[in-house]
Nucleic acid binder design. Sequence first.
DNA 1: TATGAATGAGCATTCATTCAT
DNA 2: AATGAATGAATGCTCATTCAT
Lengths: 199, 199, 199, 199
Amino acid sequence: MPKKIDHEARRRDIAEAAVQVIGEQGIDNARLIDVARAAGATTGAITHYFDDKNALLLAALDHVAQRILHELHAAPTQNPISVDNLIARACTVLPIHEEGMRDWRVWLCFLGRAVADTALARINKSYYVEFRDGISSAVERLQNAGKLDNIIEPGAAADSVLAAIDGIGVRATLDPEEWPAERQKSQLDAMLRAILPTR
Amino acid sequence: MPKKIDHEARRRDIAEAAVQVIGEQGIDNARLIDVARAAGATTGAITHYFDDKNALLLAALDHVAQRILHELHAAPTQNPISVDNLIARACTVLPIHEEGMRDWRVWLCFLGRAVADTALARINKSYYVEFRDGISSAVERLQNAGKLDNIIEPGAAADSVLAAIDGIGVRATLDPEEWPAERQKSQLDAMLRAILPTR
Amino acid sequence: MPKKIDHEARRRDIAEAAVQVIGEQGIDNARLIDVARAAGATTGAITHYFDDKNALLLAALDHVAQRILHELHAAPTQNPISVDNLIARACTVLPIHEEGMRDWRVWLCFLGRAVADTALARINKSYYVEFRDGISSAVERLQNAGKLDNIIEPGAAADSVLAAIDGIGVRATLDPEEWPAERQKSQLDAMLRAILPTR
Amino acid sequence: MPKKIDHEARRRDIAEAAVQVIGEQGIDNARLIDVARAAGATTGAITHYFDDKNALLLAALDHVAQRILHELHAAPTQNPISVDNLIARACTVLPIHEEGMRDWRVWLCFLGRAVADTALARINKSYYVEFRDGISSAVERLQNAGKLDNIIEPGAAADSVLAAIDGIGVRATLDPEEWPAERQKSQLDAMLRAILPTR
DNA sequence: TATGAATGAGCATTCATTCAT
DNA sequence: AATGAATGAATGCTCATTCAT
């Protein structure tokens, strides 16, 4: 089914173009025609791939979320499990490189939208559940490997890790000049080492 | 002589009406006429007090930020200085009651906007500076009182506290049903106790 | 009746303020509040002296027209009647000084308005009639004094003089840098000498 | 492929519709929707062809000016050069027919606007330069052909011709009933014969 | 599939006018 | 007589969506 493949690729391209435009101009200033131009298409073409603007925006959000999830989960079995490893993986998610910063900007835009859009809030929540589950099971694995204090409740620890990532990521996204990669990483490292006490 | 009007009070009322409308409908759906109605006024009246919509929005943001700052600083000298006290004060800032939740929703809306509005980003940053300074000096006072480990760098600790508050607050704002007041407080309590080790 | 005198003086002041504002900002940008400020009054006060904005504008136009008429007629009996004298008087009306330029700008604004405002067109016409009558009788006097060729029809000559003044005045008003006082005067002088042949 | 549209033709149509509306209602009362209706379009469609209202208005002015220029220059080489010919051509420009009267009304509207709009004043000036250059070179040709006194300075003569046309045109535009075509033409004829003395 | 011209509802903004004081 | 707060109609502009080609 070559057509389908092309179709999906085009959808991806357009959604990524939307991510780019939102990241640059903000979600309010992201007009359909801007996305079309960034994707080398026309507004009419976009309607072939997305029901309406909202569907396009949702696809853009999903791209960003999937990318973050993928980084969090990246090669978890290959590396030997360790606290250092978990922290390193968490740091990867921070807005420490060009693409990550853009993704965080897009993410922030959607947070603002979710305030008044229950459907979006629900979607956001489902992403958080996935994030949390991934971190929670990593904590459990570390406990089983004897590398983390058993006193810790994995779910609550995962919430703390998520909160730390979010807290630093939001701040760094809005003030990138004061928050270069190193500062973000050392700040997150300090927080996570406090939150995740080794036995 | 025309009707005596307390100009500043009217400005405050309208800005508060904007906070309310933004908190309920989101910043994108907050039309001038909605704010006018919420304030018991007309759109034309709003232009007596604000240059344009953006000025009104900024005033709304400032109200929210001032309220948070005021809570953070509330009666710092009256209470005996203690870690428990600092944590309790931090918890006060979380979206644990009706007004606080609304303020956090408004805050989130502006975070999304700041992504593409450098002026707004600058304003946000200045608020963070104030938040951080307040927390940082509280940490210092605790250290001077011998209630906090001197190993902690006050500024970095303040950043951690801010990140924890932000991380939990954002999550709770978008998913209030899963995050009742108690869960927020215990989560923040756990994080801050880990972050701020007593000697 | 001191009140009446004050009243009339205030009306004059406000109308002159309107002339000033129109001359500076154009009639489209002349807001009531601008006129009020220029007159050291408030919009509410203006409504005490003028029924509505249109009445104020009309008063402003009348001030300008009266000033021009006054200059054209100035001291006609004192000076010995001569063609040179008529030409000199015509030159006085050109936009050759600060106040005259402002009056011409106001005049031009009203010409543009008269296009779609029959009442204004009628008023403009009445001013032209006065201008023309004044010039026409001057021409007649010159003919009676034997200083102008009797072949000339005074009315038609007056129309020519008016057209020359208008043509040069309009051009100089819109391009004052290219049309300093001397150029205007020499141009008008050349035209009028051709139009008004001495015997 | 979308409907094939002659973009330039549509632009012309809309600009001409603007000329018509301005000529009928005046520039202040010319709303975008009026122009849209006159052009058989919608306000939204107009923005496809013009950045904003001002751009549309400018295009309308240009149409009028180009039409006048075209009439002044019409077939200058075909006709044998003569003073009669020049005068006849000047008369053509006067508001002596339906379309010409409308163009003059539009022209007057823009003169009023140019008072407070330096960009418009600059454009107006450039048109006058073109008018003047055309007339000036015609005068020169007449002098070279020995049909006009060499004592005349072509540029100054052109200014006089322009002033005469403007002066009569403005008056006739605002008072068309008193200034039928014949009166305009004979008045201009008289002025130009005086201004342009044959050898 | 794709184009892009056209639509039309929605909204901020302007400002003359009103009126309680 | 004067103030100036408030009104509310008017209007230019934006932009997602539609649809003829």
